[in-house]
């Protein structure tokens, strides 16, 4: 379950109530950022960060490095397969 979609934090609109404006493909919506704030992450640190939004709440900050790692693994799965194919073709 749980429809969630990455959106970018553009502006903190209410520090007291922990509300930020996010943007996704030109669509804006106010979201609550309480779940992505912590001792090491203050509201202003979030500007331009990508967060996963679910029912009007930012639930997690997208870790760009991890995203790239995943994409790299996906690439490698492909390469492995391509190599096998080349080998098969070589045998023929």
């Amino acid at each position: 379950m749980c429809l969630g979609i990455p959106a970018q934090i553009k502006e903190i609109i209410d520090v007291d109530n922990q509300v930020a404006m996010v943007n996704l493909s030109g669509v804006s919506r106010a979201v609550n950022i309480a779940c992505v704030l912590s001792d090491v992450c203050q509201a202003h640190d979030l500007i331009n960060q990508w967060v996963l939004v679910h029912v009007g709440f930012a639930l997690s900050v997208v870790d760009e490095e991890e995203a790239h790692k995943t994409l790299k693994i996906l690439d490698e799965i492909g390469e492995l397969s391509a190599t096998v194919e080349e080998m098969n073709q070589g045998e023929k």
Binding site: A7, L24, G26, R29
Partner: peptide, 12 residues
């Protein structure tokens, strides 16, 4: 259009 797709992604 991109924003129409955005509305669709957000609201499912």
């Amino acid at each position: 259009r991109v924003p129409t797709r955005g509305v669709c992604e957000i609201l499912g």
